[in-house]
Amino acid sequence: MSTYSASKTVALAQSAEEGAALSGRPLSLAFSFPPGGTGVFASLAWVGFGISCLWWPDIGDWTRTHQLAAAAFVMSGAIFLATVAGSRLGRFNAGLQRRAPWLLVSALFLTLWEVATAKFGWLPLPFFPPPQSIIEVYTDDLPKLLDSIIASVKLQLGGYVIGATVGFLTGVSIGWSRSVGYWVHPVLRFIGPLPATAWLPIAFFTFPSSWSASTFLIALATGFPVTVLTWSGVASVSNAYYDVARTLGAKPSFLVLKVAIPAALPHVFVGLFMGLGSSFAVLVVAEMIGVKAGLGWYLQWAQGWAAYANMYAALIVMSLLCSGAITLLFRTRDRLLIWQKGVVKW
């Protein structure tokens, strides 16, 4: 790792971080810097970002430029203090050391963004709003944004839980019982591959509310991959496990609950992951088209008003939520599937 040039190292920071996380060793990006050196540079970069906010006048009318600069200085100070405090902060310091290259790069990126938009207008307004206008959205439009977040989370959670539960139960039944498989498999083959969004026009007519229609579509998008993967998980359980359990006196219920399902769980989680991905897509489309609430609707509404800063702000929130949901799923999986070796770290 010490053979990388500095510029390469920056580009490789992400993959290097993943590599270090996998091997469990502390990351040594200290090409030529002393320990903590990257922290100092990161701190300086944040000062630079703060200065870039104040040095040139804004070319537009934004109210949060000074607050943004202040926040950058606070960030810089915090990084500096933490770096100086060093090993006294224990694990926090190790985390900081590992993230220092990222802190440095993000400060550089923010500076570039600030200069290219608010100061010199290299990127055309209003399509590329500066950082302070996004801060402005988060402070001034908070109630509406929060309402949208709550609406989205509620809709997503309801649909996902229903879809995952039904999909799991269907998958186990198909995998376990021949007669259930006989009846359900053709239906699954016919309906499953259809993108859930294709149902949108019909669903909004046939369901009593757009909310229930969207819940149904999200459940459908989640349910299909969960069903198929649970099914294949149950079907691929080695007969040897059943033989062992049967000779030890296991009844059929034990074979399903304590053999088939635990053995199928790794597959089930792949299904849950895929279902999560496709249900996000349905959620946003449903909110844009039918539901008058949620982040998808917020995006649509912001576009109608040409409020591009609001769109970016909503996109950032959406990304954090989706990523957070996947993180939660993977944490749960790591906890339940601790017996597996070599699982991917998210």
């Binding site: 040897a240 062992v244 769980l265 599937l337």
Partner: peptide
Amino acid sequence: FQDPTLFPWRTVWNNVALGLEAQ
């Protein structure tokens, strides 16, 4: 059996406990 066919999701103790649990 020729293969131990231990249940990989169970600890050693829980594998041994399998028969008593099933009964």
